[in-house]
Amino acid sequence: MPEKHEINEKVALHGAQQKQVYTSGVKPIWCPGCGDFGVQAGLIKAFNELGIDKSNVVIVSGIGCSSAMPHPFSTYGIHSLHGRLLPVASGLKLANHSLTVIGTGGDGDGYGIGSAHLLHSARRNIDVTYIIMNNETYGLTTGQTSPTALQGRKTKSTPFGVTEMPVNPMALAISAGATYVARGFSGDPMHLSQLIKGGLSHHGFSLIDIFSPCVTFNHDNTYDWFRSRVYKLEDVKHDPANMAMALEKAMEDITSNYSKLPIGLFYQTDRPTYEEYELSLKDGPLAKQKPHTREQIMEVLEENR
């Protein structure tokens, strides 16, 4: 295994020289009451508290209601393809690891069409903060089932009830190698802003799953439904450094038959990031490295004599 090297440009937190305005003035497309407003508020609060430099932030999203997230922000953003925000975000981060790269998308995007990328980004431990707004439904396509929909739920595409098990995002991320795994609730933006802040400050791959109710197409999993089930891990004896305990908490969704849904920081560990192992990044971000010289070109040519 290559040796870990110190990456010489740490994430540009606290980098802002002057007070920053993080909003662009573009209005979000969300329905009134949408959970995603709470996530937007949490993100802005986290930015403010960190004093983050907006020109060093890229918010990358997929497709779906929640993937409209970059537009109200005055940072850089890429609104990419359905399910593909993690590869785009990873490319950005590998090319310039002095950027703060944030992924924002929905449950269909992250746990359905893009699930392979979640798995592999987690095991890479690439330093991207991935926020998934989980409403257990497909909203923008008007209410089909989703990978996190509970069994039995009736939707337009499952009129007789969902038969598949829901994905367990926390257990999935922990077992795949994510080094910061948390869950929030958009009904509690203060709490979730602290989880986002923790994810942005964390060095490595962070998954923050957020219960973000769809007020239009999901009348089963409403604010009240979540409010009566969520409880904070900080309020019970939970050690986020303990993987076994974290997995046990993650499985509580199933063992409690979805009657108790813990929120908060499930798991956090310190493991070198992909960037720290990557040989080509020893000399700083790729985007800031000098162009290949004629001598370097001759060197690779001469290998073929």
């Binding site: 590998l94 090319a95 790729l286 690779v300």
Partner: peptide, 30 residues
């Protein structure tokens, strides 16, 4: 890798092209 290129074997070709798009967006020839 020691000559100043980053090479990533990805989980599939979908990731490969989208990573290249991300890297290019950051200003690196990809």
């Amino acid at each position: 890798a020691n000559n100043g290129v980053l090479c990533k074997q990805t989980e599939d070709e979908i990731a490969a092209i989208n990573m290249a798009i991300g890297a290019s967006s950051a200003g690196v020839r990809a």
